Simulated assay, not measured.
Amino acid sequence: MDKNAVAAIALIVGVLVGFGVGWVAFAGTPTEQPSGLLAQIQARGYIIVGTSTPWLPFEYYNETSGQYEGFDIDLVNMIADYLNVTVHWSDMDFDALVGACKSGTVDMLAAAMFVTPERAEELAFSVPYIRTNEVVVVTGNSTLAIEDLEDLAGHSVGVQTGTVEDEELSALVKNGTNIDLHRYQKVDIMFQDLIAGTLDAVYVDEPVLVVYQKVYSLKNIFTVPAPPTALYCRYDSPDLLKAINTVILNAYSDGSLDALVEKWFG
């Protein structure tokens, strides 16, 4: 692990309780020499961004408009405008995102990704731009009730593959909790299985529940505070990271981030 990865992991503790001056200084003043990725992006005229749809309201593909839409999409478009480039979206399975960014297949990631020590070992993360909760969701007529995640023992539960929710429940299973864990690449299929009775519950980000409650009768039976959410790029791209952070910090200060929250979360 290089020195930037170590520094990022050390700073996660501070990020989890708020956005401190130390983090902003780290994000805005990278210690490595620029890799030239930002210059390459501006020379080619577009930035390649990895995402994973559907994960409403953060990202989804609108079949009617033929466009990607959502909170993350709007935020990345702000970054592209700042760089004076367009966006080429690369839509893939969530658990393929980190590898795609590390290999250079994409320039950055925007996929409602929580900040975790494991991800910080692999990639550099931006100034966090939102914080949500994780929730255990059941159908409206379900009688299932839990007081902690271990109480899901004996029940079939769906998660999106590679998410923090997947990691948390997988750890419980590994340690002996008898959860019948089902992993899905697509969250819409997971909710369909919940409604069909294939699953007893699903474990997702709270904003995802809010969207699907408009379609199905669903309820939250347990809430877990989640880490903050950030964008990701490679550690050898400090010039790009600095530009990303500049846009996010400006969006905090001028109110445009609040406007995105209002637009997508109401």
Score class of each variant (00 low, 15 high):
T116F: 09
E147S: 12
G154W: 00
L109M: 03
E121H: 04
I146N: 04
L109T: 06
V85Q: 04
F94N: 08
F94W: 14
V157H: 11
E147N: 09
T116Y: 09
E69Q: 15
G158D: 07
D72R: 01
E69V: 15
A80G: 10
I73G: 02
N133R: 13
D148R: 03
T105L: 14
N133M: 10
Y129R: 11
M113A: 02
D107A: 14
G99M: 06
V127F: 02
E69F: 15
I130P: 01
I73H: 03
N133V: 03
T64M: 12
E69W: 13
A110P: 10
A111T: 04
F114V: 04
V87H: 08
D81Q: 15
T64G: 07
T86W: 09
Y68E: 12
L149Q: 02
V127S: 08
D148V: 10
G140Q: 13
G140L: 11
L123Y: 04
A124D: 11
S65T: 15
S156Y: 15
A80F: 09
A153R: 12
S65Q: 15
V127G: 02
R131W: 13
Y82R: 10
T143A: 12
V115W: 03
P128V: 09
L75S: 11
S65Y: 13
G66K: 12
D95G: 10
